[in-house]
Write a protein that binds this DNA or RNA. Structure first.
Length: 839
RNA sequence: GCCGGGAUGGCGGAACUGGUAGACGCAAGGGACUUAAAAUCCCUCGAAAUUACUUUCGUGCGGGUUCGACUCCCGCUCCCGGUACCA
């Protein structure tokens, strides 16, 4: 053997080795020691549902989070990076029915399997805080919280028309109905009247809306979606008298300025006035109206139907009295008026609302124009005028501009007791009860004498029996007598437990805060721990939770604050000026894109998946991590490419081979200039990589910069001591900066390079400003803004000297022949632009 | 309809507060090494013109501001995501 064979990069071997070392040394554990005065940083990824298998979406999510957590550790933060399991939910019950095993068994087995898969990726989680939401130690506090909310009147049981999904055999919250179908099984939901438990999120509508303005670390998209969902509109409630009756017909309008243009009223099919009119007419032998109402009631709320649905209506045969003019206007029932929004009735102003206009045209109802454009004419026979303008035909309000008229008319209504200013939200109270078994029991007892009674603190948790076997249909909990039969906490007599369980979004609404105090068994949260770690500095997950989980968690955080579990304004000594708990749970949000294969989302049902386990098996976890971080910016969709994975793998192998170059003698000659250039390249690249990490976690850009640095090191070939030292410095910087992304690889390289600390705990490299200074630069020369050449000058050359250098340069100077120089602009360190005109 | 985001080579994507457009990677083509293959290394790679030096055009479209525009302003087109008979 004449030459030593370079050692091969063996990912599997290295990865097992380092995972063991990290585990043994506990470097990923968030330090609770008061003597640790580092500022804290809380990095969290949306915790997984334990379906049994890690998919590429998970891999991407957790690799992004891990890169953030590791980077922050290297920046000197005491990092909290926890993981756990969103363990309750319907899939476990479905699997239980299929396999004939209780959901608990299936769930715990899956957790075991997925834990191994996560560990195999080398993610730097603080496993000491691992928790599963199906554990009584966890949901106990959710139950406790619920009883507090009952005390405060924020949780209540009410019979209401709710969304029901047949296959899931349960009710759903509004947020879980998408386009009229169940968010999970895509079956059209039905409307049913049932007594259900709600939490008053509507009490927090204004704060939830207002605080969106301060979430500057959230994507505009998500903020917009939530704003839209809360759906605030301001206007007035107007009270019309029903002719020949003491009843009133109340409506909400955002356009009180058009009040004088009301020519009819429209109510929903389920509105009491419509129902009453139908009954009256039926008694008189006319059931036309009853039939119409019935048809309206059956109509699906699916969007496709809504768009094509013809606007239909029928006159109720009754009239309402206009509050200002006293005129009687007909009341109609219309299929486009929703009982569930506002008062279930609208005042119709066909002249100034397109929908009312179409309806009026169809049924030959009166159209009265009361607004005209500020300038120009409007032919109301042609179309509705739905913009703001100036009032006409409005008696005493004539001449007012729309904006002013809204206030004036609303004021008039208030003074005359016929209405008032009103704010309307689209948001509805959160329906939290589910007719399912695999969930946290609602801590309530039904007593014949005392009614619904909250289970007191000392009897919590109400433990879910884990051995039951669902068979489909209704919850086995209701048939479990040992669970159902109990005594009333209030009077001691026999009573029955509530057998509904909580929506699983209840558990995921507060887990981020519980991680600060995972093992606290005396309270839901430890206020001091919250102060130290909360709120989450960086949250990472999919955008599909924009109005579900992310809205509920914001709400729940405020509830926890108001129950007194933490002080939103208190500052931790280590975090003064940067990290109060605050009223929002997530300071910064990154919504990562999907993982695609051939342009469509990877999914089991479509059969276009790549199993992360196969990739890890073939290339190692580091290659998988590097590829997912490099192939696309975090928030954009990522197209999976096998060739790209190969590329990532090749890059690691190249860096690996470069290690051999350190301390070896090469045949290149000592070259002080090349050494200086390399030193500068190292430090400009430290600067660029750091910049990419700091601005939107642009890991793709950071990796590109590291590849450039690697290329520069590869091309370097100097044999003197100075050159070798700079080369070694470059290798150390490269390996250090790689460690948040490919931690096993970096640790192994670090060990070979003789790092004093393990690479993942090495301080992030600092930019040496002195190394950035250049003796001379290539200054770009432009004529009329077009590049015509470059000159070599001192970086702080004066404009005059630069211009003289240009005149001395033949190639550039030819562009100045027969030209008169009008203006010269020097951009320091970049370019010289010469503006000329022909002489 | 409304809200948000896009449009840059064959592809994924770079370009800091306006200052050399196409970094980095992938794919493709050519070459070196090898009996051969793999691996590795080197070269080319927006379009057109030109023997060459080079030149002209070029960041969805049309205008504008500027010495200079992927970047700023005005007006469009198309694509993606969300959402709605919301009164």
């Amino acid at each position: 053997m004449s030459e030593e064979q370079p050692e091969q990069y063996l990912a599997q071997h290295i990865e097992t080795k380092w995972q063991k070392i990290w585990g043994d040394t506990g470097i990923d554990i968030a330090n609770e020691d008061a003597a640790d005065t580092r500022p804290t940083y809380y990095c969290l990824e949306m915790f997984p549902y334990p379906s049994g298998n890690l998919h590429m979406g998970h891999v991407r999510n957790y690799c992004l989070g891990d890169a953030v957590a590791r980077y922050k550790r290297m920046q000197g933060f005491n990092v909290l990076h926890p993981i756990g399991w969103d363990a309750f939910g319907l899939p476990a019950e479905n699997a239980a029915i299929k396999h004939g095993k209780p959901p608990a068994e299936w769930t715990y087995a899956n957790i075991g399997q997925m834990r191994v898969q996560l560990k195999r990726l080398g993610l730097s989680y603080d496993w000491s805080r691992e928790m599963a939401t199906c554990q009584p130690e966890y949901y106990r506090w959710e139950q406790w919280m619920f009883t507090k909310l009952m005390e405060k009147g924020l949780a209540y049981r009410k019979e209401a028309e709710v969304n029901w999904c047949d296959p899931c055999h349960t009710v759903l919250a509004n947020e879980q109905v998408e386009d009229g179908v169940c968010w999970r099984c895509e079956t059209p939901v039905k409307r049913k009247n049932l007594a259900q438990w709600f939490i008053k999120i509507t009490d927090y509508a204004e704060e939830l809306l207002e605080d969106l303005n301060h979430l500057s670390g959230w994507p505009d998209k998500v903020v917009g979606m939530q704003r839209n969902w809360i759906g605030k509109s301001s206007g007035a409630e107007v009270s019309f008298k029903v002719e020949g009756s003491d009843e009133t017909l109340d409506v909400f309008t955002t356009r009180p300025d058009t009040l004088m243009g009301v020519t009819y009223m429209a109510v929903a099919a389920a509105h009491p006035l419509a129902v009453k009119a139908a009954t009256t007419q039926a008694q008189e032998g006319n059931d036309e109206l009853s039939v119409f109402l019935e048809v309206c009631g059956k109509i699906s709320t699916k969007e496709a139907d809504v768009e094509t649905m013809e606007k239909k209506g029928m006159a109720l045969g009754i009239h309402a009295i206009h509050p200002v003019s006293g005129e009687a206007v007909p009341v109609w029932v219309a299929n486009f008026v929703l009982m569930s929004y506002g008062t279930g009735a609208v005042m119709s102003v066909p002249a100034h609302d397109e929908r009312d206009y179409a309806f009026a045209k169809k049924y030959a109802l009166k159209i009265k124009q009361v607004i005209q454009p500020k300038s120009g004419e409007w032919d109301i026979a042609e179309a509705a005028f739905s913009e703001a303008g100036v009032l006409i035909n409005s008696a005493e309000f004539d001449g007012l501009a729309s904006g002013k008229a809204k206030k004036t008319i609303t004021h008039w209504l208030k003074v005359n007791g016929k209405g008032e200013e009103r704010v309307q939200y689209r948001l509805r109270d959160w329906l939290v009860s589910r007719q399912r078994y695999w969930g946290a029991p609602i801590p309530v007892v039904h007593c014949v004498d005392c009614g619904t009674v909250a289970v007191p603190d000392d009897q919590l948790p109400v433990v879910l029996p884990e051995h039951l076997q669902p068979t489909g249909g209704s919850s086995p909990l209701a048939e479990c007598e040992a669970f159902v039969n109990t005594t009333c906490p209030s009077c001691g007599k026999d009573a029955k437990r509530e057998t509904d369980t909580f929506d699983t979004f209840m558990e995921s609404s507060w887990y981020m805060n519980r991680y600060t105090s995972t093992h606290c068994d005396t309270a839901m949260l430890d206020g001091k721990a919250m102060q130290k770690w909360a709120a989450v500095d960086q949250y990472i997950g999919g955008v599909e939770h924009a109005v579900l989980h992310l809205l509920y968690a914001r709400f729940y955080h405020k509830l926890m604050r108001d129950v007194g579990l933490f002080d939103a304004d208190a500052e931790d000594a280590n975090n003064v000026g940067r990290n109060k708990v605050g009223s929002e749970p997530f300071k910064n949000l990154l919504t990562q894109g999907m993982v695609l294969l051939d342009g469509t989302k990877m999914s089991k049902s479509k059969g276009n998946t790549i199993d992360p386990a196969d990739i890890i098996q073939k290339y190692g976890a580091d290659t998988a991590r590097l590829f997912t971080l490099f192939a696309a910016p975090p928030e954009r969709d990522l197209e999976w490419k096998d060739e790209g994975v190969e590329g990532a793998s090749r890059f690691l192998a190249r860096v690996w081979r470069l290690l051999d170059k350190v301390d070896k003698t090469y045949q290149g000659t000592a070259n002080a200039k090349a050494t200086k250039t390399l030193k500068r390249t190292i430090h400009t690249h430290i600067q660029r990589v750091t910049h990419a990490f700091e601005h939107g976690f642009a890991f793709n850009v950071a990796i590109a910069a590291m590849m450039e640095l690697s290329n520069a090191l590869s091309a370097f070939d100097a044999c003197d001591d100075e050159g070798k030292a700079v080369f070694a410095e470059g290798m150390a910087a490269l390996v250090t900066m790689l460690s948040p992304l490919v931690p096993h690889f970096a640790c192994e390289c670090g060990e070979k390079l003789g790092f004093k600390t393990v690479a993942v705990m090495t301080a992030w490299p600092e930019v040496d400003e002195a190394a950035l200074v250049q003796d001379e630069i290539n200054l770009v020369v432009q004529i009329q803004g077009k590049k015509r050449g470059e000159i070599v000058v001192s970086p702080d050359v004066s404009q005059n000297d630069a211009f003289k250098a240009v005149q001395a340069d033949e190639n550039i100077n030819k562009w100045l022949e027969n030209m008169q120089v009008v203006k010269v602009i020097l951009v320091k360190g970049r370019l010289l632009n010469i503006v000329v005109k022909p002489t």
